[in-house]
């Protein structure tokens, strides 16, 4: 008689099963985390597991509690309640053995330094047991040309790059990046993404916060969205965006060009613009394209896009803010 293997459901039920699979060791484990500032509760019961080797992005509107959460995990701020374990340590104890293994890029840039970029990086190499070469760290953040420049003469984005260089100089197993690319030009952002991907390929764990949803989408294995001190969504970017091949079709249509074939029922026609949300873009598009081709005309401004993480994010956050006072 045939009987199913007993662990057949394990891949689909990991989120329900309590014990963690031993192969995916946790870098960070947070349970029931709370933090109040006076009467105001900034973090209201947060559970979070971040696996080793994972790039995790924490998203959320201003004041959601991201920095509070990250700085508790880094060991900077005390917690009001809950458990936090980082690489097996309680970060609140501030042990040197833990600090040797993590790199921290804070949200605020440190200003006003008389030392040069290279001197700053050299100064930090002395703090860690097996640091990167200073020039290597500068190359990774694209600051090699500014090595001899005094820090106070750097531009805003260059200072931010130095912050990142100082965060990775100790060759950390676990890197915290609180809004690392704020102030970066588009090229610098692409370079920073490459850097994070490089760290990921070396098996490092990265916890980053960002307001750039494309950044999260590009970099993160998993994304958590916070609002009002709570985690309101958690999953891979694909999971959050819906895996059903959802798409948005848009084109311009004035009406004077004749009658198009029948549009799906949920099509929105507004100010000469047609927007169709669908899970079957090919099927919806085929008759439209055929019609336009037969009439020898274009569908001006035609775009087929997936709903971005941004669309999903905005909707989730709006819903969460409606629900909590």
């Amino acid at each position: 008689m045939w009987s199913p293997p007993c662990n057949v459901g394990s891949t689909v039920t990991t989120s329900i099963a309590a014990p963690e699979p031993p192969t995916r060791e946790l870098a960070i484990r947070v349970r029931g985390l709370r933090r109040s500032y006076g009467d105001f509760e900034a973090v209201r019961g947060l559970d979070l597991d971040i696996h080793r080797g994972e790039v995790f992005a924490l998203l959320g509107p201003n004041g959601a509690g991201k920095t509070t959460t990250v700085e508790i995990i880094e060991g900077y701020r005390p917690r009001s309640a809950g458990e936090v374990t980082v690489l097996g340590f309680d970060p609140a104890l501030g042990e040197r053995a833990l600090r040797e293994r993590v790199g921290i890029v804070l949200q605020e840039t440190v200003a006003d330094q008389y030392l040069t970029v290279l001197e700053m990086v050299q100064m930090f190499t002395g703090y860690f047991p097996h640091p990167l070469e200073p020039q290597e760290a500068l190359a990774l953040v694209g600051l090699s040309e500014q090595a001899g420049t005094r820090v106070r003469r750097l531009s805003g984005g260059q200072r931010r790059r130095l912050d990142v260089a100082l965060g990775i100089i100790g060759d950390p197993e676990l890197l915290f990046l609180d809004e690392p690319t704020t102030g970066f030009d588009p090229n610098a952002r692409r370079e920073a993404w490459d850097m994070v991907r490089g760290l990921r390929s070396l098996g490092k764990t990265v916890l980053l916060t960002t307001h750039y949803l494309d950044e999260a989408q590009q970099l993160a294995d998993r994304v958590g969205i916070m609002a009002r001190g709570r985690l309101i969504a958690l999953g891979t970017p694909d999971e959050l965006m819906g895996t059903g091949g959802a798409a948005i079709i848009e084109f311009e249509f004035g009406g004077s060009e004749g009658t198009p074939p029948e549009l799906p029922a949920n099509a929105i026609v507004e100010q000469g613009r047609v927007v169709i949300h669908t899970t079957e873009p090919t099927r919806v598009l085929a008759p439209l394209v055929a019609w336009a081709a037969a009439a020898g005309r274009e569908l001006p401004g035609l775009r087929v896009v997936r709903p971005s993480l941004e669309d999903v994010y905005l909707e989730l956050v709006a819903r969460a803010e409606e629900m909590t006072p």
């Binding site: 880094e74 060991g75 900077y76 040197r96 600090r99 040797e100 993590v102 921290i104 804070l106 605020e108 840039t109 440190v110 200003a111 006003d112 330094q113 930090f124 703090y127 860690f128 047991p129 100082l166 100790g170």
Partner: peptide, 17 residues
């Protein structure tokens, strides 16, 4: 000044005693 500029905070995150 080092405290106000955030220098101390950043150094606190490193293993420097």
């Amino acid at each position: 000044f080092a405290q106000d500029l955030g220098q101390l905070k950043r150094l606190r995150g490193t293993p420097l005693p």
